[in-house]
Computed example of a mutant assay.
Amino acid sequence: MPIGPQPHGRRGTVEEPYSPLNLRLVLAAFGLVICTVLSIFLFRAGWTVPGWLLVAWAAVALIDIVVIQIRRRARTRADGGRRDHSLFE
């Protein structure tokens, strides 16, 4: 999937959004927080291997957040500064 604005002529509707970037952002942030907190608990409990696995998942969530923000900025530029997107759009 290209990192950029929504392709021309592919306007999403409420029933069928093209890319729910705001929802993806919320879910990625939730995953980042949960993985970070759980990895801290696992490291304190002495379980280093599962702790490192959760650190890796937290890094993936952080990268996903960066990619989503890049796509949201591109969408805002393509829409002429329109910022009234819902959670599912």
Score class of each variant (00 low, 15 high):
residue 1 M to F: 03
residue 3 I to K: 05
residue 4 G to P: 00
residue 4 G to T: 01
residue 5 P to M: 02
residue 5 P to V: 01
residue 6 Q to R: 13
residue 6 Q to E: 13
residue 7 P to R: 00
residue 9 G to S: 01
residue 9 G to W: 00
residue 10 R to P: 11
residue 10 R to Y: 14
residue 11 R to K: 15
residue 12 G to P: 06
residue 12 G to H: 00
residue 12 G to Q: 00
residue 13 T to C: 01
residue 14 V to M: 11
residue 16 E to G: 04
residue 16 E to W: 08
residue 18 Y to H: 13
residue 18 Y to I: 04
residue 20 P to E: 12
residue 21 L to Y: 06
residue 21 L to R: 04
residue 22 N to I: 04
residue 23 L to E: 10
residue 23 L to D: 09
residue 24 R to T: 06
residue 24 R to P: 04
residue 25 L to M: 13
residue 25 L to R: 14
residue 27 L to D: 04
residue 27 L to P: 01
residue 27 L to T: 09
residue 28 A to C: 12
residue 28 A to R: 05
residue 28 A to Y: 11
residue 29 A to L: 11
residue 30 F to G: 11
residue 31 G to F: 09
residue 32 L to P: 02
residue 34 I to A: 15
residue 34 I to C: 14
residue 35 C to T: 15
residue 36 T to F: 09
residue 37 V to R: 05
residue 37 V to M: 07
residue 39 S to H: 04
residue 39 S to I: 03
residue 41 F to Y: 05
residue 44 R to T: 02
residue 44 R to L: 12
residue 45 A to R: 08
residue 46 G to H: 01
residue 47 W to E: 10
residue 47 W to C: 05
residue 48 T to G: 03
residue 49 V to P: 03
residue 50 P to S: 04
residue 51 G to L: 00
residue 53 L to Y: 07
residue 53 L to Q: 11
residue 53 L to E: 10
residue 54 L to V: 02
residue 56 A to G: 10
residue 56 A to K: 08
residue 57 W to Y: 07
residue 58 A to S: 08
residue 58 A to D: 05
residue 59 A to C: 10
residue 59 A to G: 12
residue 59 A to W: 05
residue 60 V to D: 13
residue 60 V to F: 13
residue 60 V to M: 15
residue 63 I to F: 06
residue 63 I to E: 07
residue 64 D to M: 14
residue 64 D to S: 15
residue 65 I to N: 02
residue 66 V to L: 14
residue 67 V to Q: 15
residue 68 I to H: 00
residue 68 I to S: 00
residue 68 I to Q: 00
residue 69 Q to E: 07
residue 69 Q to Y: 03
residue 70 I to M: 15
residue 70 I to W: 10
residue 71 R to F: 06
residue 73 R to L: 11
residue 73 R to E: 06
residue 73 R to C: 09
residue 74 A to F: 06
residue 74 A to Y: 04
residue 75 R to H: 07
residue 77 R to M: 12
residue 78 A to S: 14
residue 81 G to E: 04
residue 82 R to N: 09
residue 83 R to G: 09
residue 84 D to M: 03
residue 86 S to G: 13
residue 86 S to W: 11
residue 87 L to A: 03
residue 87 L to Y: 03
residue 87 L to K: 05
residue 88 F to Y: 15
residue 89 E to V: 01
residue 89 E to K: 05
